[in-house]
């Protein structure tokens, strides 16, 4: 009977005993000289010269529609890796991730080119995210205005390498945030820029959240997790240490970090 008190909860992301292993070429301990490399090749053994980094170790959880899930944990605990695996961008070593539709990572940095004008980067970034030309045309003005690039003059027609780092970050965020997503994942480091822009981008993230089915947020800022998330996953050394309502997990986490 108790089950009837639940509203129907529709899972959007299921992670089942997920393991992620990175392989790094040429990072094996040893001298970096050519002879050392040669002796590594000659030495027998499994995968010579390749070092494995076990970033996520057997994580399982189910995320439901309408949830906003915070991912916390110290640096290098596997938060961003987990996000990429959910998005299907990093292949799983073992285990599986099931998703509803195509989750997308909020970020477009890698597709942009510093030598191109801001204008062309808006188009290129939009296309890279899978928007159609018409959608980009429709949103172009909005993106440029949101970024505030043109407040100081006609910067959008200049190559991105001439931008200050703050301006470039603002344009990148504006392009990334222009698309609607079913399952949205945000690495909070994205929201950079001056105070005024930070406020604007926080607002945009909240907007995206209401449009998206499920939101994942990686952040080191406990306040913004408390403000936006109703559930928190705490990762430590690639393992899921705790999973529960925001207040409970954050209390334990703050005890752990000694705040």
């Amino acid at each position: 009977m108790a089950d009837h008190t639940f509203e129907e909860r529709i899972p959007t992301v299921i992670a089942d005993e997920l393991h992620i292993v990175y392989r790094v070429n040429g990072a094996k301990a040893g001298k970096g000289s050519a002879t050392a490399a040669l002796s590594r090749i000659l030495k027998r053994g499994e995968e010579r010269g390749v070092r494995k980094v076990h970033a996520v170790k057997g994580v399982s959880f189910v995320a439901y529609r309408g949830e906003a899930i915070g991912l916390i944990g110290s640096n290098g605990s596997g938060k961003s890796t987990l996000l990429r695996a959910i998005a299907g961008l990093l292949p799983a070593e073992k285990g599986k991730v099931y998703t509803d539709g195509q989750p997308s990572l909020l970020g477009v940095n890698a597709a942009l080119m510093n030598d191109l004008t801001g204008e062309r980067n808006v188009i290129l970034g939009g296309l890279a995210m899978g928007m159609t030309r018409e959608q980009i045309k429709e949103r172009y003005e909005e993106i440029v205005e949101f970024s505030g690039i043109n407040e100081k003059g006609d910067f959008i027609t200049l190559p991105m390498r001439t931008y200050s780092s703050g301006m470039a970050a603002r344009l990148r965020f504006s392009i990334a945030a222009a698309k609607d997503h079913d399952v949205l994942m945000i690495d909070e480091a994205l929201a950079t820029g001056d105070r005024k822009f930070q406020k604007r981008s926080e607002e945009r993230i909240r907007e995206l959240r209401t449009e998206a089915g499920t939101v994942f947020l990686v952040s080191h800022n406990n306040k913004s997790i408390r403000d936006t998330c109703n559930r928190v996953l705490w990762l430590e050394r690639g393992e899921l240490r705790m999973d529960g309502p925001t207040d409970e997990v954050l209390k334990e986490y703050e005890k752990f970090t000694g705040k």
């Binding site: 959007t12 992301v13 005993e17 189910v62 990093l90 991730v97 099931y98 998703t99």
Partner: peptide
């Protein structure tokens, strides 16, 4: 979860989820 007792694969099947990155 209300679907307690289902394995991850079954739960995924029930709601039409697909393997990410297949």
């Amino acid at each position: 979860p209300p679907d307690e007792g289902l394995t991850a694969a079954r739960l995924a099947e029930k709601y039409g989820l697909t393997v990410s990155g297949a």
